[in-house]
């Protein structure tokens, strides 16, 4: 069965560029498109943004709730904890 894509759009601002770098590191299947004023990221079935990776890129502690400041839109179910923000289709399962 073909897996549907989840997607995420972030504003084209400095903070978001670090988040996109972290997404690329942690989600090898993610594709990034640069559109007017925003970046659109798609990935098959699941996409995770990890606090640890983003914090390392930014050089400061980053809280997944800060995603609120740069998020434009998304497609998928959401789960957010202290450590990560996840988009997924299907039943939620914790993954490493």
């Amino acid at each position: 069965m073909m897996v549907d894509n989840v997607f995420l759009a972030l504003q084209s601002v400095d903070e978001a560029r670090y988040i996109v770098e972290a997404i690329e590191d942690d989600n090898p299947e993610a594709k990034i498109e640069y559109q007017p004023a925003m970046m659109r990221i798609t990935a098959p079935g699941r996409l995770t943004i990890k606090r640890s990776t983003v914090s390392e890129k930014m050089g400061r502690d980053w809280d997944p709730q800060e995603l609120q400041l740069v998020l434009v839109t998304f497609g998928g179910n959401v789960d957010e904890t202290d450590d990560e923000f996840t988009l997924y289709w299907g039943e939620y399962s914790k993954q490493d």
Binding site: L71, V72, F74
Partner: peptide, 11 residues
Amino acid sequence: FSAQSDEARHM
């Protein structure tokens, strides 16, 4: 964009 960042929560 300022409104749309809320929109993600609304969705």
